[in-house]
Design a protein around this nucleic acid. Sequence first.
RNA 1: GUGGCUAUAGCUCAGUUGGUUAGAGCGCUGGUUUGUGGCACCAGAGGCCGUGGGUUCAAGUCCCAUUAGCCACCCCA
Length: 430
Amino acid sequence: MAVLQPVRGTYDLLPEAMRAHRHVVDTAAGVTLCYGFEEVATPVFEFTEVFSRTLGDTSDVVTKEMYSFETQGGDHITLRPENTAGVARAFITNGLAQHAPVKCFYAGPMFRYEKPQKGRQRQFHQIGVELIGAAQPQADVEVIAAGVAVLKSLGIYEETTLELNTLGDPASRTAYRDALVAYFSAHKDKLSEDSLMRLEKNPLRILDSKDPSDRELVKDAPVFGDFLNEESKAFFKAVKDGLDSLGIAYELNPRLVRGLDYYNHTCFEFTTQALGAQGTVMAGGRYDGLIEQMGGQPTPGVGWAAGIERLAMLANDTPEAVRPMVIIPLGDAAEIRALTLAEEIRAEGYRVEMAYGGNMKKRMKHANKIDAGIAIIMGDDELAKGVAMVKDLDSGEQEEVPLEQLVGGITAWELAEMYGEDGLPSDPQD
RNA sequence: GUGGCUAUAGCUCAGUUGGUUAGAGCGCUGGUUUGUGGCACCAGAGGCCGUGGGUUCAAGUCCCAUUAGCCACCCCA
């Protein structure tokens, strides 16, 4: 609007939005830790090859969505468009193979040069988990279960649908891909413009086309099931059985594909109707070929990523801001004592604001404006008596409390009055 | 990258067929005298009408471009 705009597709996280993000991240970190995923952080930029060599030369992410630049030293750098490649790189460079299986959780900004929409920014944020070094289908189940637990903790699981598919092992996938190319190539005249492109880049995507003419063709297209070899079928069955035994509902979606090349076997998405065209809330799958493709030893892996913005838009149980208590000193001696009193109460883990400036009324209004729950009014005469007037700003009740009790005893008094029975912050130090 | 819609105060929006000093609500600041807030009342500040061109005696209003947002496609989290 004004001359000073944020860069297209970026935005500021002001306290209210930041709290929603924090809630998503903290919830996910806590839940996934129960599954053994420990938080890690990798750089927000990597050498460009980390992404270009792994994501696939034909993927949209590589061909048109990367923020890449050359440094003064001549290095080719790219802001990470996703974090699986970065984690995989860290796995290799830190020699984590000896600790396999490695389970990690991450949260942070990702960058994609896309046309912004609601729920789609150029700098956005993702949480995700990766389980590297476990080839068993039980690992897929565990990863998906962790995702379910996160969604449940955020109170949005009921709004999502788990869509599940298998991409098979590379042999199955290649065979199917070839069959699809053969089939659609024979009907090029009926394919949409987009799908002609897809035929070159990612034929599997044609199956998911929204074009009516494409859809007609898709009806008679080869079915992936016919090309899955026994191992791939058994693997997929084991994943489904695991989910069944956990009572995790899913819908098989044979058209569910991945834009990134390193996926194989299991792929899944949690989708919702509540976010318009940006319906994917959490997505992931197995990527057994990735580490090897990057130059490491052959190492299987499985994981998912979820957009924090999208999760935050769905979650409506974001905690309220912690209400402060406000100290209102009146008089020179009280002003001085208030400084130390504030420090003492803060040291106990409470949010304390000072109301300086203005007369009593001004300061009370200030207390009100910052949504304080408690006002500690301390004039020179109270100070002389060694007390302070403690006022509950919701009920209007107030009473004199000896200063020494105030510091040591504020906890119970303040919490009870300030938050009532519910809405109690679990730990005010957080 | 393609197509459509939108752009007026911090926020949500009015601004008639182009016509004087561009409005409201909320919010913000100050006040309604003494050390007690919320409510009410009074007053005030705050707008290159997204930006740049053009048409016209005259443009917030019409035209073009540009930027940004929104929506759909593509793709994705």
